[in-house]
């Protein structure tokens, strides 16, 4: 994809603070109308990259293009942004807040108010439209922030950790909203370190670690980078398993005796392995050849020490 066709394009972008390199040589393109996942552990450079994307901070090196403009500030009226750490004016009402932020994005007062009321109605906040923000629950306030991000119908929506702090029901509502935005032809880029959302929503993913690009592509391409792993439960010992064709590593489960994880050579076939087990008379009581989860891919690509939220139990 060429830069000219991209909703967002980064070319060798870097940001340094003194000797510290927060982001280094980052290049990627986001196709219009797609959902793009921006993944990385805490402190990887996600927020710095998003701030550069939005024109809040200037890159030290490289070039950025947002909706064809060299600075997001030049197209700010076509961009919606929800930051990771969110706040609102406590003494303003949800209606006033959404209208104010819509007006800053170039909407006239009357249509901004009409659209704000529509969104508040749609997301179940109509009864609180004129309550002060300080009187709302945290979840309600977060909804108000999300509505303020999309009220001006932006072509590009940038969401920094949008699911953080939302309960499972509201996470589901937000996932549906993101999918609605894609159906309307809008581009959505969101950062997260909760893999399940990215797995379900994203057309393409970018993994960033220690300020550098670790991976960029589709989920399938990410899986192709991963060696196949197979979980076996057997009475055979580790040496027997290591001798099987295509096996490069055998790891015994320290908790469950007789359980092993076999790492296969790239291109090795799991069915051949199963056939070899039967041919060699190895008794199997379990055989699991499921595809690696994004979480595992993330850990493998980003490397040891990365803080990855295992979303099991927190995501819907």
């Amino acid at each position: 994809m060429s830069t000219g066709e991209s909703a967002i394009s980064f070319r060798e972008v870097g940001k340094s603070y003194g000797d510290f390199r927060a982001v280094e040589g980052l290049s990627f393109n986001v196709a219009p109308g797609s959902i793009y996942g921006f993944l990385g552990p805490n402190g990887a450079g996600k927020t710095t990259s998003l701030r550069m994307m939005l024109g809040m901070i200037a890159p030290s090196t490289g070039e950025i293009s947002v909706l064809g403009s060299p600075s997001a500030m030049g197209v700010r009226e076509r961009v919606g942004y929800l930051p990771e750490e969110r706040g609102l004016y406590r003494r303003m009402t949800p209606l006033e807040t959404i209208v104010y932020l819509a007006r800053l994005k170039g909407m006239d007062a009357a249509p901004a108010r009409k659209k704000a009321l529509e969104l508040l109605e749609r997301f179940g906040l109509a009864a609180f439209a004129k309550s002060r923000i300080e009187a709302l629950s945290k979840g309600m306030a977060q909804k108000v922030q999300i509505l303020a991000t999309i009220v001006h119908a932006p072509d590009l929506v940038i969401l920094d950790e949008p699911f953080s702090g939302l309960d499972p029901v509201n996470q589901q509502v937000l996932e549906e909203l993101v999918e609605d935005l894609r159906r309307e032809g809008r581009t959505v880029l969101f950062s997260t370190h909760v893999m399940q959302h990215a797995e379900r929503l994203c057309d393409r993913l970018l993994l960033i670690a220690r300020g550098k690009l670790a991976f960029e592509g589709t989920l399938d391409e990410a899986r192709d980078r991963m060696p196949q792993t197979i979980k076996l439960t057997t009475s055979a010992d580790a040496a027997d398993l290591a001798a099987l064709p295509g096996v490069v590593k055998v790891a015994a489960d320290p908790v469950h005796a007789g359980s092993y994880e076999l790492t296969m050579k790239n291109g090795a076939d799991g069915e051949n392995l199963l056939r070899s087990c039967f041919e060699r008379g190895l008794q199997l009581t379990g055989f699991d050849m499921s595809e690696p989860a994004l979480h595992d891919i993330f850990v493998a690509l980003v490397g040891e020490g990365a803080e990855v939220a295992d979303s099991r139990g927190t995501a819907p």
Binding site: R51, R76, P83, E85, G87, Y89, L101, K105, T149
Partner: peptide, 18 residues
């Protein structure tokens, strides 16, 4: 200080320059 401490500033700075 309020806008900075409650992180509202980031939303505002996506709409207006500093």
């Amino acid at each position: 200080i309020e806008e900075r401490s409650n992180k509202l500033i980031e939303v505002l700075l996506s709409s207006v320059s500093a």
